[in-house]
Design a binder for these strands. Structure first.
Lengths: 189, 189
DNA sequence: TTTTACTCTTGATAAAAATCAAGAAGTTAT
DNA sequence: ATAACTTCTTGATTTTTATCAAGAGTAAAA
């Protein structure tokens, strides 16, 4: 059983038969460090389950790059506006390290529903879960200080601090690299 | 045609017949000013289309109340974690004015899919739209100063400033009421 | 290896935003 | 109408966070 199959199994109540059907639509693909999964302006036409490596999602504004998210093993990588509404993305999605992904094209993705009746419902639940995740993130940004955001993130994602340039983590937490650096120092003392 | 039917019509490609079927599941309900649609700790078991009035969604922390969202006509009001995953909510949802809502119970909501095959797909698209909306909000909170957030919000929601206590708008934009007050003053000069 | 990029840290300073406190205006209740 | 609440504003001050600048450490490239 692949990690993708394990994921589907643990998050959705689907029969083993359906799991292997679903996962058979996905192809193992790779990205080399620095490669772009998607560039701003493109219309995303694929969905990937993140098997290994690190990926950064960011927006390039005139003034700065804003890291919206850093993906690690176990997340899905895509641009929802692209695969659902065929809209060009504002995000750049780039591999920070060599990566392995299980990837499906939007066309195939949209056909799964024909073979697996429960599919749309599973999709719905999955997106709903993502929605509540973002809700929590907004609450964090609205209500917490930089120090509190750092603490919370650090507790949940310790590993990332050794693997990802800290400036990206800082941006994703809504602070400058200098501020993050000082918070880290203060924590040690 | 009710505003709910108009909404369904404009956002989803559904036949007029299906529209009236869908909307027939919704009942017109009212909230009086101050009434709670939902209180923290409860499991949300309804979904409402907001017809008139104003509703505030907030989290009560030990230190302060954090306004997550202010709903006006045309939005849906619910707690997704409740209706999708049967989880208790952390939100308080309270009427700021007398309100009219088209409301459906979760049980009925979950039955619509039996009568309208496309339903799950519509739901999925609707939630996906909400997801991208939150993505944009996170980007705003990560990348903009208080002044920029105020400006952007003001451009899109001018009306709200006359109808809602400004302290709630301030909280929703991630700033204190004093800061919002000063930004407003500066804008006039 | 040497050079060239990055990345992170640190200090000094400036800017932004929060806090505290008081008072003015407007609402609601009695 | 008066009193009791709220809400908003304003000023003074403090705290938080960003900006600017320089240097140290690391990794990658020539």
């Amino acid at each position: 059983m692949t990690v993708l199959e394990q994921y589907i199994h643990s998050y959705f109540g689907v029969t083993l038969d359906d799991i292997s059907k679903i996962s058979s639509y996905f192809q193992l693909t790779t990205l080399n460090k620095g490669d772009y999964f998607l560039k701003a302006g493109q219309i995303c036409n694929k969905l990937s389950f993140h098997k290994s490596g690190l990926i950064r999602v960011y927006v390039a504004t005139e003034k700065k790059e804003v890291t919206q998210w850093i993906s690690t093993q176990g997340y899905f990588v895509t641009d929802l506006a692209g695969i659902m509404f065929n809209k060009p993305t504002k995000y750049n999605i780039q591999a920070l390290t060599d990566c392995e992904l299980y990837t499906i094209k939007t066309d195939d993705y949209n056909r799964i529903g024909n073979f697996i009746p429960k599919w749309h419902q599973l999709e719905k639940l999955f997106i709903a879960r993502c929605f509540t995740f973002l809700e929590d993130r907004i609450f964090m940004l609205l209500s917490m200080t930089a120090a509190e955001r750092y603490k919370l993130f650090f507790e949940n994602q310790k590993e990332l601090f050794n693997q990802v340039p800290l400036q990206y983590i800082a941006s994703m937490l809504g602070m400058t690299p200098e501020t993050l650096s000082r918070l880290r120092k203060k924590k040690l003392e």
